[in-house]
Measured scan of single mutants.
Amino acid sequence: IQIFEKGDFSGQMYETTEDCPSIMEQFHMREIHSCKVLEGVWIFYELPNYRGRQYLLDKKEYRKPIDWGAASPAVQSFRRI
């Protein structure tokens, strides 16, 4: 998965294949504004440590949070399923 600090795949980008319990600790990001799921299925969580509201992401590109069903870019953790 590739995660971006700004919408439309702009700003700082990080790519990982590992679960992330805290985007702040692992990537020094506060929010995720866009992402590209390159393979597999992932779950975004609103809070750290896989808690809070969940969003299921299939293999595709998400230009903004509304594309994965979120009203805001408040994603604090994610993991692959």
Rank of each mutant, 00 (worst) to 15 (best):
I1M: 07
I1E: 00
Q2Y: 05
Q2N: 15
Q2I: 15
Q2K: 11
Q2A: 05
Q2F: 15
I3G: 01
I3C: 08
I3N: 01
F4I: 00
F4M: 07
F4Q: 00
F4E: 00
F4G: 02
F4T: 01
E5N: 06
E5L: 11
E5V: 13
K6A: 10
K6P: 00
G7C: 02
D8I: 11
D8E: 06
D8A: 12
D8K: 15
D8T: 13
F9A: 06
F9M: 13
F9S: 06
F9E: 03
S10I: 06
S10C: 05
S10Q: 11
G11N: 09
G11P: 11
G11I: 02
G11F: 02
Q12G: 12
Q12D: 11
M13K: 07
M13F: 07
M13Y: 14
M13N: 05
M13R: 09
Y14P: 00
Y14L: 12
Y14Q: 15
Y14I: 09
Y14W: 06
Y14V: 09
E15G: 07
E15K: 15
E15Q: 11
T16R: 10
T16G: 10
T16F: 15
T16C: 11
T16P: 14
T16N: 11
T16W: 14
T17R: 09
E18G: 12
E18Y: 07
E18C: 10
E18F: 09
E18M: 06
D19F: 04
D19L: 04
C20I: 11
C20G: 02
C20M: 09
C20V: 05
P21N: 08
P21G: 10
P21I: 06
S22Q: 08
I23S: 07
M24L: 10
M24R: 09
M24G: 10
M24F: 06
Q26I: 06
F27M: 11
F27K: 08
H28C: 12
H28F: 15
H28W: 13
H28I: 14
H28K: 14
M29Q: 13
M29L: 05
R30E: 13
R30Q: 14
R30K: 13
R30V: 04
E31H: 14
E31S: 07
E31L: 13
E31K: 07
E31V: 14
I32R: 00
I32C: 11
I32G: 03
H33S: 12
H33E: 13
H33Q: 08
H33P: 13
H33M: 12
H33N: 09
S34W: 00
S34Q: 01
S34N: 01
S34I: 00
C35P: 01
C35V: 11
C35M: 14
C35N: 01
C35T: 14
K36A: 11
K36T: 08
K36G: 03
K36N: 07
K36E: 08
K36Y: 13
V37L: 11
V37P: 12
V37K: 12
L38F: 08
E39H: 05
E39L: 10
E39V: 13
E39M: 09
G40P: 08
G40W: 02
G40Y: 04
G40K: 02
G40L: 01
G40C: 03
V41G: 14
V41D: 09
W42G: 00
W42T: 01
W42N: 01
W42S: 00
W42A: 03
I43Y: 13
I43K: 04
F44C: 12
F44G: 11
F44Q: 01
F44Y: 05
F44I: 03
Y45P: 00
Y45N: 04
Y45I: 00
Y45H: 04
Y45W: 06
E46V: 02
E46A: 08
E46Y: 01
E46S: 05
L47S: 06
L47M: 14
L47C: 08
P48D: 07
P48E: 06
P48H: 03
P48T: 10
N49T: 03
N49F: 09
N49P: 01
N49S: 07
N49M: 10
N49I: 02
N49V: 03
Y50A: 01
Y50T: 00
Y50Q: 02
R51C: 10
R51W: 04
R51T: 14
R51M: 13
R51L: 08
G52Q: 00
G52K: 01
G52H: 00
G52F: 02
R53C: 06
R53E: 12
R53F: 06
R53Q: 14
Q54E: 06
Q54T: 12
Q54H: 12
Q54C: 10
Q54V: 07
Y55S: 01
Y55H: 15
Y55V: 04
Y55T: 12
Y55E: 02
Y55M: 03
L56C: 04
L56F: 12
L57G: 11
D58W: 01
D58R: 12
D58P: 02
K59G: 04
K59R: 04
K59Q: 08
K60Q: 13
K60V: 03
K60D: 02
K60N: 15
K60E: 06
K60A: 10
E61V: 14
E61I: 15
Y62R: 15
Y62L: 15
R63D: 06
R63C: 05
R63W: 13
R63Y: 03
K64M: 15
P65M: 01
P65Q: 12
P65L: 06
P65Y: 15
I66Y: 03
I66V: 02
I66W: 10
I66C: 15
I66A: 07
D67V: 08
D67L: 02
D67E: 13
D67M: 12
W68K: 06
G69S: 14
G69W: 08
A70W: 04
A70E: 09
A71G: 10
A71S: 04
A71C: 06
S72G: 12
S72R: 04
S72P: 13
S72Y: 15
P73W: 14
P73L: 15
P73V: 15
A74M: 09
A74E: 04
A74R: 15
V75P: 15
V75A: 08
V75H: 15
Q76H: 15
S77Y: 02
S77G: 02
S77F: 00
S77C: 02
S77A: 09
S77K: 00
F78L: 13
F78K: 01
R79A: 15
R79V: 01
R79E: 03
R80K: 15
R80C: 13
R80E: 02
I81C: 14
I81R: 05
I81D: 15
